[in-house]
Design a protein around this nucleic acid. Structure first.
Length: 353
DNA sequence: GCTGGCTCTGTCGTGTAACC
DNA sequence: GGTTACACGACAGAGCCAGC
């Protein structure tokens, strides 16, 4: 999701000096020096950018002050990223904090820009597995690699997997933000919009997978029939399928899909809670949780019996709504998130789809 | 292969601002 | 007013390359 290398197609690879790392007591360096011709799309004057720092399994979006030294000749050169104030959470300060924990290691930095003009910094310590990969990819230290270099495509391929792999937590947060509308400052509006689009695609793919699964069940006479509400157009109903298990018995199915693990939060609107709460006793409601959607083998767990949870939440919503009315305020819509393990009494073992 | 000039990068002295 | 932190930029040295 994050990974689209900037069209300048340059990657810098540098061994960091003790002064870069802030490890030399006599040094006063307040920046890490970078090389020219990488991040040339940024202005010469110092600008604050969002940057992703990756170090082993650590991945975080931090502030980064990028710029160049203004020489007396008027030339702008020697690009660098500044440390900022001591307590400021910047790329340089975080790199120096990691380096201070292993003062005997050698440290390397890989950096490049994304099409979104965000920056990526990959910090590597000489005692890490990443260092072995980096040594294979980059045969020469302290060099700028471009698309004509054999290392470039190798590096992009490895870094794409690395960035997408270690940024799972960030992507989970964005998936949540896309479903709830929650504003998180570090994510740009485009990221949320992309995640929202992706989430809708994943939601529809999940429903398609369940439609195929139910078709097989129907042929095996495990169920008598089913109806897919969104097969042609989005129905707007608070459920996705109705399954007929016997002549009269109806089971309302809501398919909740995620690229991540089973226990990622499920999100309900107050309308969905009201619908489930209002079901008659002869009707059933289940969530078909489709997870690991990024893998070739998607997984399913069927979750049933959430009436106790729904009754409690519905009462709380009604109570809150009533209290708001007392101060001439209406409760227009609510989104609630809950982990499947915390709201369903019966959760069936996983099925590989 | 050697030399000299140019470019690039890292180091660190110094001025300034912030803080106590 | 003294101390500390930070930013700026001069300068040294390494690396590169053209000319011989």
């Amino acid at each position: 999701m994050f990974f689209e290398v900037h069209s300048e197609k340059k990657i810098g690879f540098k061994k960091l000096s003790p002064n870069d790392l802030g490890l030399k007591k006599s040094g006063h360096q307040t920046h890490i020096g970078l090389y020219q011709h990488v991040l040339d799309f940024l202005p010469d004057n110092h600008v604050e950018k969002a940057a992703i720092l990756i170090y082993d399994d650590y991945c975080e979006i931090l502030n980064c002050d990028y710029g160049k030294i203004n020489r007396s000749t008027g030339k702008m050169e020697a690009p660098n990223i500044k440390s900022g104030a001591r307590n400021e959470h910047t790329i340089v300060n975080q790199i120096r904090e990691f380096a201070s924990l292993k003062p005997t290691c050698e440290w390397y930095l890989v950096w490049f820009g994304l099409q979104s003009e965000e920056l990526v910094f990959w910090l590597i310590s000489s005692d890490s597995e990443d260092f072995q990969h980096a040594s294979n990819i980059f045969p020469t230290q302290n060099k700028v690699y471009d698309e004509n270099s054999a290392s470039f495509s190798l590096a992009i391929d490895f870094l794409e997997k690395k960035v997408n792999g270690v940024s799972i937590k960030l992507q989970e947060e964005i998936e949540v933000a896309s479903q709830t509308g929650k504003q998180i400052k570090k994510y740009k509006k485009q990221d949320i919009e992309k995640a929202n689009k992706l989430f809708k695609q994943i939601g529809y793919s999940g429903e398609q997978i369940i439609a195929q699964y139910l078709e097989k069940q129907k042929l095996a006479h495990t169920i008598s029939n089913y109806r897919w509400m969104n097969a042609n157009t989005e129905s707007g109903m608070p459920f996705d399928f109705i399954i007929n298990e016997g002549l009269e018995e109806e089971n309302f199915i809501d398919v909740k899909s995620t690229r991540f693990d089973f226990n990622q939060y499920l999100y309900y609107s107050d309308e969905e809670i009201g619908f489930v709460h209002g079901l008659k006793e002869d009707k059933k409601y289940s969530v078909y949780r489709v997870f690991d959607m990024d893998n070739a083998k998607k997984k399913l767990r069927v979750c049933t019996n959430c009436m106790s949870y729904v009754s409690s939440v519905n009462a709380d919503i009604a109570d809150l709504s009533s209290k708001m009315e007392k101060v001439q305020t209406i409760l227009q819509s609510i989104k609630i998130g809950v982990r499947p393990n915390d709201c369903f009494v019966n959760i069936q073992p996983q099925i590989i789809l």
